[in-house]
Design a protein around this nucleic acid. Structure first.
Lengths: 335, 335
DNA sequence: TTGTAGGCGTTATCAG
DNA sequence: CTGATAACGCCTACAA
């Protein structure tokens, strides 16, 4: 592999000059530039990115930490991040927390030890407090799909309250009044906000929130089936079921069908996230779009702007969800 | 950030000694080791991985190139790769080809320019020829879920022929004889092999392969719906439908149901891959397990062994698929 | 067992 | 506009 030194020899200039034409940061005469370019071409020169990093104190790498790699969420997010960053010639180092706090923290440590210029983080288990502490460190961190007041300039988040509102609205507007709700883990902010939005929509329609129609799930399909099982066994009356994510909606639908319910005639179901499989399940799931790809793109854009001083056209840190109406909600049927 | 030099000063030894206790490759007296460790601790020293890379000519990074980041396949694969590699203190740089040959090639170039120690590649569009050419370069490449004869030591692959055989078998063993098949793109080796396996199973049961019951899809749900539409419109008789992947199976099922078929009574459907949503769709999809996570793990293990000389317990390069029997296949019903 | 010193391939700060 | 030359932080013969 040719080095900058060999290029400089061939071109008959100093190595500093070669560096200059590469980085275009200092004026170099057209003539010398041409010579250098020719030499580079001839030697098939490729700068050694590691040496560049060492000398410039910039690794040009962004660490991305996600709580889990599999699952329907992650791919979309990564796609947005990777595309944006690679266009800017930055690279993405990826780590997964495998859904455990210990691994998430280790992963972050790992990324720091890798000299990343910035971190984009989407974690479940690490506390807000730890995140704030982390942000005091040398390396800038950005949070995706998670809002922490103290770090608001660093957050890309979704209006989960509005999402919860929209999903309840989808049922209410079809005339449903007995609406069960399977929430996500209330130890976390996102599911809390979704629940809040749900309650707001009910209140707007003068429907009291019934504890008996509430169940806290785990965001997995099993949480959905457990929730509806609970409602059925406690003999609740409900014509619609709102779930705080699509996985739980899917679990609930499977359970409902196995127990003789006709979907959506006997029960309308609404999800949240609009993951890829939402349109594969039957009936096609009405859900709330969670613009994960866009959020990934935006997080990357933010890094580019703040860390690398790249001009960014427009930054949008707070995203609004939208309802995706498909086939899993039927009009309320008095019978 | 403390440097190795500061540590050496504090410990009262040379910087070479500090380097030695870090790398444990040369004997250092217990006493000095202790001093050095204490100094490191005190200064909260963290080696600069970039400087290490430059000096040792090892970036400790492995580039992973996937054709697409979203989709149900990728996450599993990545999870296996990342976990294995991080345990060995290597990091993963990720790039996506966004399903276009141009991007796939650019991505590979990008990874090479990033001084990766090895590449793990899962591409769709790049030709075998190009892959072979690539492997002549300085940087070792490994192929995942793809078999190229000339690169067989570098391949982690699945026995797709056997998978095709198993999926057909699932229908045959339930008494089905009129079995439609929606294939994947026949320009690629994997779908070809699946089709071959399908034919072998038919032949074993003395059932001729009918061109009229064959359709070539695109591995997307749309291919599945187009396929079954074709069969229905040409008035074929078939009681089972085998699809070369789960997405197409899902698309076909949706279409079938919309056209009045009862699943699985009127039509048994079999998929391939066992992606995450396979158990979310209705009826739960009988399919063939594609052990993507394990293949990812194994690719990483192979890299660790070949590139970093880490002892590997057991290498398995060729994986066997297994049938996952769920609810989408019903016994053949003469009626 | 430990220290010395050269080198890895760039960038960046000086002069000129 | 261009050329020396010192960092950057670490590894690794080679010496001692």
């Amino acid at each position: 592999m040719a080095t900058i030194y060999q290029v400089s020899e061939l071109a008959g200039v100093s190595l500093a000059t070669v560096s200059r034409v590469m980085n275009k940061n200092t004026k170099v005469s057209a003539k010398t530039t041409a010579k250098v370019l020719a030499a580079m071409e001839q030697l098939n020169y490729r700068p050694n990115s590691i040496a560049q990093s060492l000398a410039s104190n910039r690794s040009n790498s962004i660490g991305v930490m996600v709580s889990e790699l599999n699952g329907s969420f992650f791919g979309q997010m990564m796609a947005g991040i990777e595309k944006t960053l690679r266009n800017a010639n930055k690279h993405v180092i990826i780590t997964s927390g495998h859904n455990e706090e210990k691994f998430e923290k280790e992963g972050i440590e790992f990324l720091i030890s890798r000299n990343c210029d910035a971190l984009i983080i989407h974690v479940e288990a690490v506390s807000d407090q730890d995140l704030v502490a982390l942000s005091q460190g040398d390396i800038p961190i950005y949070l995706i799909s998670h809002y922490v007041e103290a770090l608001k300039e660093k957050c890309i988040s979704l209006d989960n309250e509005m999402g919860g509102y929209l999903s309840a609205k989808a049922a209410l507007e079809q005339g449903h009044r007995d609406i069960a709700y399977i929430a996500g883990p209330q130890s976390k902010a996102d599911p809390q906000a979704r629940l809040l939005g749900h309650k707001r929509a009910l209140a707007e329609h003068d429907i009291p929130f019934e504890q008996a129609l509430y169940f806290e799930g785990d965001f997995k399909d099993i949480g959905g089936s457990a929730g509806i099982k609970h409602f059925i066994e406690t003999k609740q009356t409900f014509s619609a079921l709102v779930c705080a994510n699509d996985e739980m909606a899917s679990g609930a639908m499977t359970y409902a069908r196995e127990h003789g319910l006709n979907l959506p005639q006997d029960l309308s179901v609404i999800g949240f996230d609009n993951v890829l499989f939402a349109r594969h399940i039957h009936p096609k799931l009405t859900t709330v779009e969670n613009p994960v790809y866009e959020m990934g793109t935006m997080a990357a854009t933010l890094v580019l702007r703040d860390v690398y001083q790249k001009p960014a056209k427009q930054i949008k840190q707070h995203f609004q969800p939208t309802l995706i109406a498909r086939d899993s909600v039927a009009p309320y049927n008095k019978g």
